[in-house]
Design a protein around this nucleic acid. Structure first.
Lengths: 244, 244
DNA sequence: CGTGCTGTTGAGGACGATCAATGACGGTGG
DNA sequence: CCACCGTCATTGATCGTCCTCAACAGCACG
């Protein structure tokens, strides 16, 4: 039974032997309770963290105290590779559910990076993350609340599937979605209700549970190719037709 | 007299000897006229391009034909490193002014990347680009048109300074700004006029010319630290005060 | 001297923000 | 077991920012 991190490394092109070295280096564990912080906005610890289980988000707090969620992290995702490369980036990571985190000291990371397959996997991972930012930016730019929310949910669902998490339920509160989509909580609530009305989300009002992914992808104009996950992408083929 | 690319490499921590090897590899040149495409959205050429002079933008065309500008490129910027790592990313690069572009074949790039200083510089560059996307995302999220436009302009001005371009004039049309900020052209026009009224932009209606950077930074809540350009950043210190 | 692109202006309308209040649920401690 | 509290979800009403449509002006180009 492959773990999310296993799957992730495989997707990034890391073979069994390198993968094992990696997993060996990431032995140290940390548990973080929901709503706690995994990395503070001005963290200086000389180690990187990898999310093994649970869901987290990268956020920034702006001057008026509002939290702005920049991306979500799922099992298998690197949390703070950026800090290894650029020290003074003010970006916090917060656990949205209970999380298990692996820790690798910068020293050990240096060694890992001397292996070409691992170095290239890290670079690939960074570029994929960047592609997600681009997609989010163009989705946030000029689309309606309904499209934004649908797109956001599609992306998370697809990424979770790619690491073996097949549950239709997403561990986000409407507040999280609002902070990520750049919408007010009130309006997110109305948007979610619209999606429920359309039978795209389940009626369960304590959860975000996707009932009709195809429809959701269509609404969100979601084309998962940018996630570059060959096996998964096919389930999320372009649903968008040009129409008059 | 250092070229923008020189300056950029230096900022990324590349020393003279590696830098020379790099410049040697980037001998091949290409001229692209304003409004022409540097890289098409489905380009497959096995080479990377580096902008030596001029200004360009990375864009996506969405299903209804609208152009969405994801980032701007200035002299010294890599255009399409992402294609080297992730082949099938649909992202076009378009010249906004007349541009000079250097070309490096993937083969030669492989060799360059065997030099640790260069490899690490590329990784740094990617991470810096990612930091800019994050910043853009949080600026686009929940701020007003005025803030967005101001922030956008500040960023470009600061990045241009970092590679030795000190002109207060930015080579963007209001259409470019609209596509980048996710606003309508009409509203960008009104926003620009507000900035002119405030004496932040010059009255010249054929150009975007910044007269008062401090004020612009304040309006855009621009804090250039995310650009990670030690010498330049100080001119752009935080202008934002908490206020009641 | 037209043609096209960019910039400008006005009017009307829609989407989403904000304010305010209430409901539902889970956990805690008495 | 129940009262209390905090968090999240929901609802209604009002308001403002920004979009859309439409027309026109200025300038560069051939």
């Amino acid at each position: 039974m492959a773990s999310p991190l296993d799957l992730k490394l495989r997707t990034l092109g890391v073979q069994a032997d390198d993968s094992n070295v990696f997993l060996e280096a990431a032995k140290r564990r940390l548990h973080v309770a929901a709503h706690e912080s995994i990395i503070r906005e001005a963290d200086t610890a000389e180690q990187v963290r990898i999310l093994l289980a649970g869901t987290a988000c990268a956020y920034k707090t702006n001057e008026d105290g509002a939290r702005s969620i920049l991306s979500f992290h799922h099992a298998g995702d690197f949390c703070d590779l950026h800090r290894y490369v650029l020290s003074d980036l003010e970006l916090g990571i917060q656990a949205l559910t209970d999380c298990t985190v692996a820790i690798i000291d910068y020293q050990n990371l240096d060694e890992l990076l001397s292996r070409p397959a691992i170095a290239s996997a890290f670079w690939r991972a960074s570029m994929l993350e960047m592609a997600r930012y681009r997609e989010r930016l163009s989705s946030t730019g000029r689309s309606t609340a309904l499209e934004r929310v649908a797109h956001l949910l599609c992306e998370q669902l697809a990424r979770r599937e790619a690491v073996g998490i097949h549950s239709p339920r997403l561990p986000f509160s409407q507040i999280d979605i609002a902070d990520a989509a750049g919408l007010s909580v009130v309006h997110v609530n109305r948007t979610v209700q619209t999606l429920r009305m359309l039978n795209v989300l389940s009626r369960a009002n304590r959860y975000i549970e996707v009932m009709d992914r195809k429809h959701l992808a269509k609404i969100g104009k979601f084309d998962g190719r940018y996630l570059n996950m060959s096996n998964t992408a096919s389930n999320w083929a372009v649903q968008v037709e040009t129409r008059g």
